[in-house]
């Protein structure tokens, strides 16, 4: 397997663990973003950290997006005091449609398999105005388009 195959596999494994932690039935695009933020030594990771977007910051932004979206229809998360449910450690969430789209967009951002690098996958997750990721970033005051521009710059200047 090439380095990028290992990286894609690591993103999916890490993203699956994030989905499991949420009790989510599927791995979604925002789980891939959390995975990219968790795997260091890549330009994608450096782009995120340069915008102060570590895994924990992204988790908090996602939490705020969840609350904000519920508030829009008059539901307050604060009124629910849910105990943490038990999880089946053997249950493995499948790749959901939003994660699949993000991966496809990442692959499409590269000029071919040999060109494909972690920053392309980050571009794939960021390159949409619709869904949880852009909403969470906007609420956190993150310039998503600027982040994409930085990812493209690193692709021009960095090999990984």
């Amino acid at each position: 397997m090439s380095a990028i195959d290992h990286y894609i596999n690591a993103v999916i494994v890490r993203g699956t663990a994030e989905a499991q932690e949420d009790g989510s039935a599927a791995v979604e695009a925002h789980h891939l973003l959390l995975a990219i933020a968790s795997l260091d030594d890549t330009a994608a990771h450096r782009v995120l950290t340069s915008a102060s977007l570590g895994r924990q910051t992204i988790r908090e932004a996602l939490g705020r997006e969840f609350e904000h979206s519920l508030n829009a229809v008059g539901v307050s998360l604060a009124s629910f005091d849910l105990p943490t449910p038990s999880r089946d450690p053997k249950h493995s969430p499948k790749i959901g449609p939003s994660a699949r789209l993000a991966l496809e967009r990442g692959f499409a951002a590269a000029t071919g398999k040999k060109d494909l690098r972690p920053a392309h996958l980050l571009l794939g997750v960021l390159n949409t105005e619709i869904g949880t990721v852009p909403r969470a970033l906007a609420l956190a005051g993150v310039d998503r388009v600027g982040l994409m521009a930085r990812a493209r710059e690193t692709l021009a200047s960095e090999s990984w």
Binding site: G23, S24, A25, F66, S69, L70, A72, V73, R135
Partner: peptide
């Protein structure tokens, strides 16, 4: 987005 969040809350 509210639909997505409500489904998630209902699952939880």
């Amino acid at each position: 987005a509210a639909v997505v969040a409500l489904r998630r809350l209902a699952d939880q």
